[in-house]
Design a protein around this nucleic acid. Structure first.
Lengths: 345, 345
DNA sequence: CTGAAAGCGCTAACAG
DNA sequence: CTGTTAGCGCTTTCAG
């Protein structure tokens, strides 16, 4: 029942091709006819059928957004940036949640391919094996990931400087006098978290060669942070500071610290990563490393769109700066660390 | 360049229609031929073109998700539920952020229509005028909103019992002995928030006729909560409890309360709405009214899908139960409220 | 500047 | 059970 360009052609007394030209603002059409066509379209309340157009042009004016879970506030931030940028260019974005499951991720990727999306933004390819990566490469559509992927030369990347973020955190904590610190990070082989950890160790060492770093691994969310912090406090009572691999983990750790009867930052200093909105809201406000999720989402779509038109373009790489946001979850240690007091509790 | 059913027809020595039948698992095809076709498809690494299929079938196997901002954790929860349910049915969801701007919302709606989505999940229609609502009605595709919309008989709704949620909060606070309470809610005419406010007032009164309720209005986010709480404490120093219209507002209020040198719940009890993940994580853990966002997202898509096939079906309405999640942000008041002490600060 | 014709990749009658 | 024939709604040569 929907009205088609044929209907409006009849109404305006022209042919469908003329209607198409008028509607698309093409050259080579008289202003008079264009007006007549546009008026007819308005009268009939015409809605273009983009799937028909997509069939003939081969493009679908949409992008895939394949994240592990949109409930992760950082991904929501990225998604919003991506959607804004896509929308400005007349594209829309289809949302997929992979839970970092390789099978799900590939199933979604194939489905997006079938929908003829112009490109896809994938938060990570860490879970994929060689064959799966090969499949993505052969799809020959632009793909950008939020994971450093030096080995996969066909992927574009948008990341923040994770090493530097970790470094800033380590340096900061060490400068405050912390010498026995824990890092709460992910279980799985995860390139970006690995970079943060590496940077953190370097940052600590840049200030103090004898700083002691304990690594704890667990799920990459607030629940995981809660558990890891409990384990950290049990296993290493003397720690005076914790670097959480992201803010969600930090929030969980904060809860665990409170429940252990300790205080942030008085007993344990805490620093996160991401700078999600709530970081400024919790008590105490969380010192953290800011990475610009919204901008990263925009940049990713910008790259996708640039590559969508051309053929065989080279992947692009964009690294965003990070920034230490100093709030109130870290404190400077006295000369003689009050380890005894804390243990006395 | 992509391989089409014609290619695989040639390869398998049959016609395209046979290929179509084999691929779609239709009846009336011999097992032998089907196998041959499937094998050819595999060999050629065939990827079906869903936009072509969409053109002929008229359906696009996708749904629109039109929320004000995916960064709102409640919407992220809804989105995840919606996406899971859609994916299970072979649909995908295209994400749009309207910022509650009526113009943007309609632009997105039209764009979704042009993409021939099977239905759309819209978080609110509160910002829309009569003409715009009319336009949505005339689009004649299933639409479900997360806003009570008694007046708009063509819309399906999935909501929680907002009145009851407010009521539970009011009753709870009044039972704890609070008699002078503030409610932090939205500036704009917002049906679901209005219901919460109405329920809250009734809940208070159900316990105590002389309870005093002060309403503050502001932006519907943590920043707004922060500002409203500051205004509330300045304007009404005697309040002993605050009901925030959602958790984000509650988090903002919590921060304001701390900054004013007061404590939750010792000086001011605080209760939120939604039960987002962080509610359990903040300190003190936030007592709140839980609404099941994930399930609501699933239910909305369930309705959309049910209506997508049939013609002229009636809208459906689904109301979810709410639940008081008692954590540690509220406390019982002594017989004689210690108003003097608090004011003395 | 406009019309006629062909076709994007797929499905769906209708025959056989 | 399989092939033939028409399109879905739109864009895009190619003529005129």
């Amino acid at each position: 029942m929907p009205v088609t360009i044929t209907d409006i052609a009849r109404e305006a007394g022209v042919t469908p091709s003329t209607v198409s030209r008028a509607l698309n603002g093409r050259y080579g059409i008289s202003a008079a006819v264009r007006e007549r066509v546009l008026a007819a379209a308005r009268n009939l309340n015409y809605k273009p059928n983009l799937v028909a157009r997509g069939l003939v042009t081969g493009r679908s004016q949409s992008l895939g957004l394949l994240v592990s879970d949109i409930r992760n506030p950082f991904f929501a931030e990225v998604a919003r940036g991506a959607e804004d940028e896509a929308n400005a260019a007349g594209y829309d974005v289809v949302l997929c949640n992979s839970d970092l499951d390789a099978g799900k991720q590939m199933a979604y990727f194939r489905s997006l391919l079938s929908k003829r999306v112009a490109g896809v933004l994938m938060n990570s390819v860490a879970a994929l094996n060689q064959r799966q990566l090969q499949e993505i490469r052969e799809a020959a559509i632009p793909v950008v990931t939020l994971t450093a992927s030096g080995r996969h030369r066909f992927l574009s990347t948008v990341i923040c400087d994770n090493f530097r973020g970790g470094y800033l955190a380590g340096e900061y904590l060490a400068r405050l006098g912390h010498r026995r610190v824990a890092h709460l990070t992910s279980l799985r082989r995860h390139p970006v978290l690995a970079e943060r950890a590496r940077g953190f160790a370097k940052g600590l060492q840049s200030v103090s060669r004898d700083a002691e770093l304990l690594i704890f691994r667990g799920p990459h969310n607030s629940r995981g942070g809660y558990e890891m912090a409990h384990r950290a406090m049990a296993a290493a009572p003397g720690i005076t500071a914790i670097f959480a691999a992201n803010d969600a983990v930090a929030f969980g750790a904060m809860k665990a610290i409170f429940e252990a009867g300790l205080r942030v930052p008085d007993d344990i200093s805490l620093i996160g990563f991401d700078d999600v909105e709530l970081a400024a809201i919790v008590h105490p406000p969380l010192t953290t490393i800011r990475q610009p999720g919204y901008e990263m989402g925009r940049a990713a779509v910008e790259i996708l769109l640039r590559q969508a038109d051309r053929e065989g373009v080279l992947p692009e790489h964009r690294i965003f700066d990070v920034e230490l946001i100093e709030r109130q979850s870290c404190r400077a240690l006295q000369e003689s660390p009050a380890v005894g007091c804390r243990q006395g509790r």
